[in-house]
Design a protein around this nucleic acid. Structure first.
Lengths: 150, 150
DNA sequence: TTGTTTTAAGACAAAATGGTCTTATTACTT
DNA sequence: AAGTAATAAGACCATTTTGTCTTAAAACAA
């Protein structure tokens, strides 16, 4: 798997928040229901993104999470790095510590390009723009049709 | 991580065998030592590749494993699929079952291209050719210099 | 035949990942 | 003040992946 489940869940919830009106809080309960993700597990993942200041939380009735300015400006790459770490984009495809252009593994040159294209894919747009694009294109972020861009 | 550890170990051992003279048996013990991989773990992984007929085994003194014709003609992609499965190359990047061109996730179109380039990278050459290329380029397949293309 | 060298098979353990549950804490509502 | 709705924190459990160990089976050698 390219991205961990935690990571995918974090991305989908981030896209959910990107679809909401700026500044508005959305409860984790709502997101977990609409995206069909375990509530407690999603809570834990989003705590990481809140700690990393991509989101802001507010407790109590009508509380929840919302994207911060940093979050709205963030790309999916930023979120992936925050959850899964940077290794995918820096390490050798065969996991060989000494691999480099001096003494490369058989995949080295190809992998440099390929991993850059993965990064480019994730860096293409910000959450803010993805929120707007989602409304236009009705992008899928849930398995079922439980979520819809209002 | 793009590939599991099992998969990476399997690829590295396959490359090791590709560097050996055709038809010659190499013991798993030798490979595990030179590649710095746990002997028993490597044994288990290579049993999968033997069961899938990429390799042939021979027991007893001077026994070991060697690439079959199928193995020499195989690409790294074939080996990856045998160990990690085909999912990486068929599934949605966000793991959404219903994702497709009718109702795509935000990454859908990019991911189609990117995962194809990963596949292309792994399909570029066969083990046989990689064995020859390795001798010319002295490709790295171990972390330390414990292995050398003789 | 007995011992040695090798893979095969499978039980078992450890670590990482994924997931659940309970208790705090904060803020609102009545 | 008391109750309710929400996140925060962390203990705990389950599953998957990774790794170890033991025993069996095959082939060779003395």
């Amino acid at each position: 798997m390219l991205l961990s489940k935690s990571c995918v869940y974090g991305l989908r919830a981030s896209l959910y928040l990107a679809s909401r009106k700026e500044g508005e809080f959305t409860s984790i309960k709502e997101m977990s229901t609409k995206l069909d993700i375990s509530f407690h597990f999603l809570t834990k993942i989003l705590q990481q993104l809140t700690a990393a200041a991509f989101m802001e939380s507010y407790k109590g009735p009508n509380g929840g999470l919302r994207l911060s300015q940093k979050g709205r400006d963030a790309t999916l790459f930023d979120l992936v790095v925050a959850i899964d770490g940077i290794e995918l984009f820096t390490q050798c495809a065969l996991g060989l510590p000494g691999c480099g252009s001096e003494k490369p593994c058989p995949l080295h040159e190809s992998w440099i390009d390929t991993r850059a294209s993965i990064q480019a894919m994730l860096e293409k747009t910000t959450l803010d723009k993805l929120g707007k694009q989602g409304k236009e294109n009705l992008f899928r972020i849930s398995a079922t049709g439980a979520f819809s861009w209002s």
